[in-house]
């Protein structure tokens, strides 16, 4: 474990908790893409199947349980509890256009052709594009609540920190995983446009609004 991975995990945790609190406190999921949240729940489910069979450390197990619990709680709140506030008209990104190609790619490009490994690879590829419906929704609505932009910033930052973690691990441990690195680069690049808007607008106290 190195400081970049630890801060990356904490940034990820902050993002997930921030979103959960936003929906819970405002009792509304306006501006939140349910499709992205369903894909994140799918990412954690397919990635943490070894939760009970492969114990790494208390930290690792606790974080996996928290990620799984929070992501399912978020999906539950969006599609059940606060369904009335779900903005389905703007959450129109075709998620199947992501899940199917990602599923196919996981079969073709992986480290080992075993169910667990293919599911892990699927979760890595899916996570890299899972935020697209959310970013797409923001372009449709032309704006985002400030709390939502903080959520997105923390979420984007987490994988950027993981990229530094992989550089660190390559340099000091000679460890690298090309699938995770390439997907991590794609994932972080997708946030660049948002990062620019976040830093130039939200951090200057302005609301994030896109030229509609």
């Amino acid at each position: 474990m190195n400081v970049f991975r630890l801060t990356g995990d904490l940034s990820h945790l902050v993002a997930i908790i921030l979103l959960l609190l936003k929906i819970w406190k405002t009792r509304s999921c306006a501006g939140i893409s349910g499709k992205s949240q369903v894909m994140f729940a799918l990412v954690f489910t397919t990635r943490y199947l070894d939760l009970f069979t492969n114990f790494i450390s208390p930290y690792n197990s606790v974080m996996k349980v928290i990620y799984l619990g929070c992501s399912y709680a978020t999906v539950y709140m969006i599609y059940m509890k606060f369904k009335a506030s779900y903005d389905g008209n703007h959450d129109t990104f075709r998620a199947e256009f992501l899940i199917i190609p990602v599923g196919g790619l996981a079969f073709l490009v992986n480290h080992e052709f075993t169910p667990l490994e293919i599911l892990w690879t699927f979760s890595i590829y899916l996570e890299s594009v899972a935020i697209l419906p959310q970013l797409f929704m923001i372009t449709k609505t032309g704006e985002a609540e400030t709390i939502t932009t903080h959520y997105l910033f923390a979420l984007g930052l987490y994988r950027a920190l993981y990229l530094i973690n992989w550089i660190w691990r390559y340099y000091f441990e000679g460890f690298f995983d090309l699938i995770a690195i390439v997907a991590g680069c794609v994932q972080t690049i997708l946030y660049c446009d948002f990062f620019y808007l976040y830093i130039t607008k939200v951090l200057h106290g302005k609301k994030l609004s896109l030229p509609a």
Binding site: R5, D9, I56, N60, M63, K64, E117, E173, D177, A180
Partner: peptide
């Protein structure tokens, strides 16, 4: 070995 190592990441 490599896989074992990697699986320690979230």
């Amino acid at each position: 070995e490599q896989d074992k190592e990697r699986k320690d990441e979230l």
